[in-house]
């Protein structure tokens, strides 16, 4: 605990250990408030080991339809990724897995959706989509990038990064 005096940022890791030991020894009723308290003081550092867990559990690409298109895609404050797929399209399922990973990794930065081209032909035709899978990126309601076919994950990530770093 000597480190605690020298620097507040160094305190982070040891204090985590300290609290977990503390929790083990004391009753759960008393253990939780100080632990919670410690968290609120903590800068980002101690939070990060928890994040991967939360990320894996939560976000995946969700379904968007013609009905939710305007609110989910066009009016979105953050950039949006939409994967257009068809029901019996084998490669679409491969792209799906990648988009699910991306949805988790870019949680909070990019919203990820999938749209069934067969079920929502009006949206599909509006964006002149012929071949699936196709991944289309939107920013401020405008289509700005698209990746046709089945590509390695890097392709999608690169497209997202371009969209995130672009000013418009």
């Amino acid at each position: 605990m000597a480190m605690a005096i020298s620097s507040s940022s160094l305190l982070v890791a040891p204090s985590c250990q300290f609290h977990s030991q503390f929790t083990l020894r004391s009753s759960s009723l008393f253990a939780s408030p100080p632990l919670h308290h410690a968290f609120s003081f903590r800068p980002i550092k101690c939070k990060s080991p928890l994040r991967p867990l939360a990320m894996r559990r939560s976000s995946k690409a969700t379904v968007v339809t013609g009905q939710s298109w305007t609110t989910s895609v066009l009016d979105s404050k953050t950039p949006v990724l939409v994967e257009f797929y068809a029901s019996w399209c084998g490669p679409c399922q491969m792209v799906h897995r990648v988009i699910d990973e991306i949805a988790a990794e870019y949680e909070g930065k990019v919203k990820c959706y999938v749209l069934n081209a067969d079920k929502d032909p009006q949206i599909t035709e509006e964006y002149d989509i012929k071949a699936v899978p196709i991944v289309v990126l939107f920013k401020n309601g405008e289509k700005c990038e698209s990746v046709v076919g089945t590509m390695p994950k890097e392709f999608y990530v690169a497209a997202i990064e371009r969209v995130l770093s672009s000013s418009s």
């Binding site: 029901s87 399209c89 084998g90 679409c92 399922q93 081209a117 067969d118 899978p133």
Partner: peptide
């Protein structure tokens, strides 16, 4: 599984349209 899904997609189109239309297009 990619192969399997596509074969089923072709079969589905064969059933519904009479021809094995590519299932990877709109």
């Amino acid at each position: 599984s990619v192969t399997s899904v596509v074969i089923k997609g072709l079969a589905d189109h064969k059933d519904s349209l009479g021809a094995p239309l590519c299932p990877c297009r709109h």
